[in-house]
Design a protein around this nucleic acid. Structure first.
Lengths: 113, 113
DNA sequence: GCTATAGTTAGCAACATGACTAAGTATGAA
DNA sequence: TTCATACTTAGTCATGTTGCTAACTATAGC
């Protein structure tokens, strides 16, 4: 089962910023150089680079340099742990209601004459 | 389509902390008073209260006071926006590959004698 | 080789976060 | 009424985050 999960923290933290989410969305459509990612943000390059570093440390993107251009790309399935955690919570919740339901059903049965 | 979404930022931010995730997991099993939530964390009450406030501001939990006990409960479906965003990214990604695939298929067809 | 382009590094300021202690309030029980 | 319980509020502190500017490096094109 789920244990320490510092990676989940980094993943969710990376996604908690609108600029970074926009970058992920952009990269979901295909790889792009740093400048292209910076352009729509209105932020300076060093700032953009920090955001990219956060995304990379979270495992959401990779990047490689070719000549003087660094191209970034999304890492497929990197969102899977986040999705799984969310699904787990829903499962716990539903399980709880199933049991509540069973309890109520049982109680009603016992109330019957 | 998705636009500003400051709520998504708050949601992901709230989930970016292991203590808070543990609280959500605990509450997924059923409501609990503040003290019960505090106990396994090893944290002081004021700290726990701040975490709960973050969760509440993110819309993940609700709480109500009965006598001197405040009982917290999870808000069902509050994770839905996070889940949707993640699914959207995957959809974009898959769409991109469908198109890549179509392109390659087309290219191969044109290469055929 | 010179120059423009595309990143990169270093360092700083402002604010946010997560923990704490100390002191206060409100309620249930004796 | 008195006391313990269950928060609650206020205030502090260390650290982390997000933005910036300035100065630097490396490569492509002429």
């Amino acid at each position: 089962m789920t244990k320490y999960e510092p990676d989940l923290s980094r993943l969710f933290h990376a996604l908690a910023d609108p600029t970074r989410r926009a970058m992920v969305t952009r990269l979901a459509r295909g790889p792009a150089p740093v400048s292209d990612l910076a352009e729509p943000t209105g932020l300076r390059l060093p700032t953009v680079l920090r955001h990219l570093a956060v995304l990379e440390e979270a495992g959401l993107i990779t990047s490689a340099k070719d000549g003087r251009v660094r191209t970034c790309a999304i890492v497929p399935e990197s969102l899977a742990p986040a999705r799984s955690w969310i699904d787990e919570q829903r499962a716990l919740w539903e399980d709880r209601f199933d049991r509540l339901d069973a309890y109520v059903t049982q109680a009603m049965r016992e109330t019957e004459t």
